[in-house]
Structure formats: C-alpha cells, structure tokens
C-alpha cells in the first residue's frame, strides 16, 4: 500500500469516469484531486505538491501530450501517467521523450493503474533522494 500522503491528480474530461476513479483510489489510501481539463490541471500543478498525475490523452482543448509537455516545464517533479485509447509506438516514444512515466491502455482495471501509480511514486522518491544528496 502506498504512503497515505501520496497526492494524485486525476485529469479527465469524462466527469463520471474521473469521479468514480477518484473514489476508488481514495479507498486505496491515496489523496486524490480532480481536474476536468488540461488548463485546470496546469493551475493545480502550479500550486505544487502533487506526486502523480494521471492524464487522459484525449481531451478537448489541450490534449494529454501537450499538457504533459506544459506540466513538465512548470514543474518537473510530479510523475505523469498517461491513459490512452490506443497503444501507438509513435505516441509512446513521444510520451517517454517528454518525460512521462508510463502509459496505460484504456479501459484498464483499477488495480493495473494502482500498480503504475506505486511505481511512479517509487521513482519520484528515488529522484528526490538524488536531488537532496
């Protein structure tokens, strides 16, 4: 189980999907915040203190990949997991190049997502240790 203070930001324009996923993750001990668009997410990231961001690729306005690039320039610390409807090699390469942690095929069981979130938290902790040293 993850540390209880792990802060997750869910970014998805599909409201019901986002809120239910939020409820499920809270049950598993994460502190969850939600954003309905990439812009909302950017505002939240600017305030700092987010550990993992779960980002949907397909959103009106700014899509997930663009949002990923913006987030990383605002604050490189949070790890980003991208949810996508399709495994596409080009997109995967782009995600990794922009510093995304991992991408997940949608629809996916919540437990798969939890495994990825825990991996991302671990990676973030390791990075912070390096930074502090």
């Amino acid at each position: 189980m993850a540390s209880p203070t792990a802060r997750i930001l869910l970014v998805d324009d599909e409201e019901r999907f986002r809120t239910t996923m939020g409820k499920l993750l809270r049950k598993r001990g994460f502190a969850v915040e939600e954003a309905g668009s990439a812009h909302e997410a950017l505002v939240r990231v600017q305030q700092g203190d987010v550990d993992v961001i779960v980002l949907d690729v397909k959103m009106p306005g700014m899509d997930g990949i663009q949002a990923l690039a913006k987030i990383k320039t605002l604050d490189p610390l949070p790890e980003v997991i991208i949810l996508t409807g399709h495994a596409n090699v080009d997109a995967a390469v782009e995600i990794m190049r922009l510093g995304g942690y991992e991408y997940l095929l949608k629809p996916c069981p919540i437990d798969d997502l939890v495994v990825k979130i825990e991996g991302a938290l671990e990676k973030k902790k390791a990075r912070e240790k390096v930074l502090r040293a």
């Binding site: 239910t20 499920l24 629809p107 069981p109 919540i110």
Partner: peptide, 11 residues
C-alpha cells in the same frame, strides 16, 4: 470512453 466508464462503475 463509455467502456472505460462502465468498467470503473463495476469496480
């Protein structure tokens, strides 16, 4: 997307 929503609700 609707599929993903259904999956989450079931969970």
């Amino acid at each position: 997307n609707p599929l993903a929503v259904i999956g989450r609700e079931v969970e």
